[in-house]
Design a protein around this nucleic acid. Structure first.
Lengths: 236, 236
DNA sequence: CGTATCCTTGAACCATGTCAAGCAATGTGG
DNA sequence: CCACATTGCTTGACATGGTTCAAGGATACG
């Protein structure tokens, strides 16, 4: 269950073009290629455990992971989902005293490549553009968090749920039938939106009856985006 | 009301020792000293306006500012307070397309020194330690946001209010009589905690009757920290 | 000294959480 | 491949924390 000490698979983990790594030069990319180690995780596996030292950062190659924080009551709050190409963990490499307050958990079976921390430092030192690129990612994440915080503080559950469904479609896309490429349990929706499982179930039923979504078991598809958006912005 | 285009005062704005600037060398500090411009703002003034381009970052010299986000209903959500020595705005300098989704507003009369963006880039390029230092700050802020988000999603208003009072004491300290060095209106408390003004008023009265705090007009003092902490962690 | 802002209290309403129970789907071991 | 266990889904009934509305008092401000 500890971070990164699973079986190593040597499969080719292609680092996507459009990520944080885009400003690295050939040498630096090669350094990464040599340094990285690929791992496979199963659904439910803990990739980074809250409070445990992190010794590198990772790039997600396949599958989906969730960043979660456990509240005082032990309840899981989902902070965000990572998709293929997303990078995580660099935050906790900069300061030895900064242990992660969150855990990273596989939502599906997933593959990632792990890069030991010394390479992060090397790249920051040798390539200021890379440093700036990381900071940009951090800034975007911060804006995202601020939006979430404001939503949770000010919006009703129904509005928040609508907004999250839209976000998920935007981030993960849909399959040929329009179903979201991310199948969550009702409990995960609840832990993401910040509500009770029963409330999610009831609201999903409402959305369905209003023609906003369709459901096929765990798969959900948005049928009327405009109406959902309208709901997400309603107030009072 | 726009950012930074106020009267310039040439008062000495001492950059505190224990900040993001601690790893700069003499030359770089001197560069900053020459580049900075000092400004004074009055209570309620808008220092950075949501959606408007930011052309530099600032270091708060005196007073208190709040970072706020306006929800769809126009309601203010207070994201955090900055205290003397805190730095803000660097986030929005890295990417021309990243306009701030938040506003920065003076809670009290306050003074700050403003440093144009080119110097930020220069320091990041010339001094990787500085880059890392900024990233550390960003990481800490991120952890803080995650904690807030989880609290707001999972805790009752009473617990959150207790926790915020404790945070404020820790961040801003108290005067000789134990009163918090940050006097907020009930509405500001409400916008910080994520609740209605009336609820804050009622809960403050409860805290007072339980001996946790004392109140003198807008000034609040914690009298029983342990009990407050206990309340902040209760669940169910 | 009058106007604006802030604070307080009461009452009514309702969105959401909680509890309980049953069903459906999925997975596991014999 | 079936039986059993586990996990997830759904619904109803109920309790309640919190918002909203309304009104009045207190305090600060020009």
């Amino acid at each position: 269950m500890t971070a990164f000490d699973k079986n190593i698979s040597l499969e080719l983990c292609n680092i996507p073009a459009n990520t944080i790594f885009r400003f690295l030069d050939i040498d630096e990319l090669q350094e990464l290629m040599l340094a990285r180690k690929c791992f496979q995780y199963k659904k439910g596996d803990c990739i980074i455990q809250c409070g445990h030292r992190v010794t590198g950062f990772f790039c997600l190659n396949s599958g989906v992971v969730k960043i979660v924080k456990y509240g005082d009551s032990g309840r899981e709050q989902i902070i965000k989902f990572l998709k293929t190409g997303d990078v995580y963990g660099y935050q906790y490499l900069l300061d030895d005293d900064q242990l992660p307050g969150v855990s990273v958990i596989a939502v599906d079976d997933c593959g990632l490549c792990f890069i030991p921390s010394e390479h992060l430092f090397h790249m920051i030192r040798s390539n200021p553009k890379f440093a700036i690129e990381i900071m940009k990612v951090a800034t975007q994440e911060q804006e995202e968090m601020i939006n979430r915080l404001t939503d949770i503080a000010q919006k009703k559950v129904k509005q928040r749920l609508a907004k999250r469904l839209i976000e998920i479609e935007k981030t993960f896309g849909t399959d040929d039938n329009g179903y979201l490429n991310l199948a969550l349990t009702r409990e995960e929706y609840a832990n993401f939106v910040g509500t009770a499982t029963e409330t999610v179930i009831r609201l999903m039923a409402v959305f369905k009856s209003e023609g906003c979504i369709k459901m096929e078991k765990r798969k959900i598809a948005i049928r009327n985006m405009q109406k959902l958006q309208q709901i997400s912005r309603e107030f009072d």
